[in-house]
Design a protein around this nucleic acid. Sequence first.
DNA 1: CAAACTCGGATTGATGTTGTCCGAGTTCAA
DNA 2: TTGAACTCGGACAACATCAATCCGAGTTTG
Lengths: 160, 160
Amino acid sequence: MKMSGGVEWAVHCCVALTGVTEPVPAATLARLNDVSMSYLAKQMQALARAGLVRSVQGKSGGYVLTRPAAEISVLDIVLAIEGREPQFVCTEVRQRGPLAASPEDCLRACAVHRAMLAAEQAWRTSLAGVSVADLVATVDRDSGPDVLSRVRGWLVSPTS
Amino acid sequence: MKMSGGVEWAVHCCVALTGVTEPVPAATLARLNDVSMSYLAKQMQALARAGLVRSVQGKSGGYVLTRPAAEISVLDIVLAIEGREPQFVCTEVRQRGPLAASPEDCLRACAVHRAMLAAEQAWRTSLAGVSVADLVATVDRDSGPDVLSRVRGWLVSPTS
DNA sequence: CAAACTCGGATTGATGTTGTCCGAGTTCAA
DNA sequence: TTGAACTCGGACAACATCAATCCGAGTTTG
């Protein structure tokens, strides 16, 4: 029930990529966050497979956001990294054992399953309501707009 | 990000234990659901450690609910099995790398962290709003009250 | 055209979950 | 009182998934 640590990196990378038009290599993003370059590359590949970023190969290649930040929700990123399978899988215990219910009585999901689905839906709705643009606005409000500006400038021409 | 399969068994066991005053052994609960006896015992131990059920040892021992079903939420069971650690752990990437923010600028949780916390809170709130008594009522409404009655009777004197 | 730089997937090690086992303790009955 | 059977409880392996790494395929650029 623990979320993959790569999700945090992926979200931070998406925030940093806002406002940058040139492709940014995975190695640059890794140095910015001081994390493993190879492993962050794996997360960026997952984002590319999900269509959130576009990968550009070649000498001055890297990753670019495919959509405006306002159209990328945190849920999109989480699903791209963690996968689309629901967190709770019902094994239909009511159809097993000596008092098994008949399959025709189990057309609707069982009560336990429905409670879990509702909770997961609430979770997804909350994440879907926050976009990368919202995160950018929050950071600007908290720490000032110059923080992200410096990050974007560093991504274009990294020093060190 | 996948929920432990033992959670499903634990919730079903709590539902089955409602209305039963005598202790029910783990072996009986395992046969009812046709699952591994030893592994279900592990889940029941976790419930006992969390104080949701009381374990009675000896010849006619077993497990009994400690509280009325209306006072046991699904969240209580999930936390007892999965643990109380939050699903998202912030590693404070903003304080790392060449553009690291100073610690005094990080007194409040970062925007990413807050979004994740809000989603997890929504998930917990949804689970906390469903009690075991609610699940019992739902099953009674869906399949009729005799289904759970037969289960309770079987738990007291199992055949086969 | 060649060289350098990029992404992409296949490979290995660490961590947590799933499943199993046997010993400590308690209750019941003789 | 004594014994025996039955219970829980924690310690023990097997499996799967996550974390981290490496090298090859492809592209751009000079």
